[in-house]
């Protein structure tokens, strides 16, 4: 079974001065599955994401990514943009980070930067407009158009991203991440701020990405309806450590999980209880 893990996090540690944000965390995400990372506010979920995607250098531990072809990459040794470029890990942000002054289409074109850069002969061939560059550009626009259609934003393609409603921005950010053609997609609270209808649409989108693209998804989410409905495996964190792991049903009934949510925040505990009934 273990050879079917796309991501293995091994004794991950992340300290900020005296604060231990992530403490000896180990878990694995299965290939082609949706893995959810949940926990009360400040549990260290976003910090884990930042370690995986190279925004933080872990204080200790290992993060291993295994591609379909068996190639293994130690993510904690790569940094910065190389994780997205070489390891094919894409992410979205808890507080949306689109390019607000560029159109939705342009956002998706920027996401295809590395492929287009190669096609444009590091700009020189593109500058003189050789045919191979033109066809690569058309293909990129087609890919962007396909993703805009999938997230239901085709008619807003030429609008500035900063002008889109909040829910549309969330979906555009996912489409932008998918345009990098990732092996692993990391989503930080994609349902935050969405209404019930929108989060239902999000569920369908994520399920279709898993089914059609075969992309493995790692998901941070507070919205339990999303977590319970679509995730295959749930990892629960509190104060930087893993307190439970298993199927959504098993985690939901785990007394430690309920206690963590009860101790942390009454509202969230109620939310967990409600979605459990």
């Amino acid at each position: 079974m273990s050879d079917n893990h796309i991501l293995t996090v091994d004794h991950l540690m992340m300290r900020f001065g005296g604060i231990v944000a992530v403490n000896d965390l180990s878990f694995a995400a299965e290939r082609g599955k949706i893995t959810a990372l949940i926990g009360p506010n400040g549990a260290g979920k976003t910090t884990v994401f930042n370690c995986i995607t190279g925004f933080y250098r872990p204080s200790g531990g290992a993060i291993r990514l295994t591609h379909d072809d068996g190639r293994t990459i130690q993510l904690e040794r790569l940094n910065d943009f190389r994780i997205a470029k070489r390891a094919k890990v894409a992410r979205t942000f808890q507080n949306i980070r689109l390019f607000p002054g560029m159109t939705a289409l342009e956002n998706l074109m920027v996401a295809q930067h590395n492929a287009l850069m190669r096609a444009s002969g590091l700009t020189f061939l593109g500058l003189i407009g050789v045919p191979s560059w033109r066809s690569a550009e058309r293909a990129a626009i087609d890919l962007a158009r396909a993703w805009l259609t999938r997230v239901g934003l085709l008619d807003r393609a030429d609008d500035a991203a900063g002008n889109l409603p909040y829910g549309d921005q969330r979906r555009l950010e996912i489409a932008r991440a998918m345009c990098t053609e990732p092996a692993l997609l990391c989503l930080d609270e994609p349902a935050a701020g969405l209404n019930a209808r929108e989060s239902g649409a999000l569920n369908e989108l994520l399920l279709s990405i898993r089914a059609d693209q075969g992309t493995s998804i790692l998901l941070i989410e507070h919205d339990m309806s999303v977590v319970m409905e679509i995730s295959d495996h749930v990892v629960v964190m509190d104060y930087g450590v893993k307190i439970a792991e298993g199927t959504p049903q098993a985690v939901r009934d785990d007394p430690k999980v309920i206690a963590a949510y009860l101790g942390a925040d009454e509202e969230e505990a109620i939310a967990v209880m409600e979605s459990a009934t």
Binding site: T53, G54, F55, D80, F81, R82, I83, A84, K85, A90, R91, F93, R97, L98, F99, P100, G101, M102, E106, M109, V110, A111, Q112, H113, N114, L116, M117, S120, T123, G126, L127, R176, A177, T180
Partner: peptide, 22 residues
């Protein structure tokens, strides 16, 4: 061209650029 779009994207949000492998 991709380089020009990357310049503008850099102006808009450098962190997002890095997350996209630029």
């Amino acid at each position: 061209l991709p380089i020009g779009r990357a310049w503008e994207a850099l102006r808009e949000d450098e962190v997002a650029c890095r997350a996209l492998g630029i």
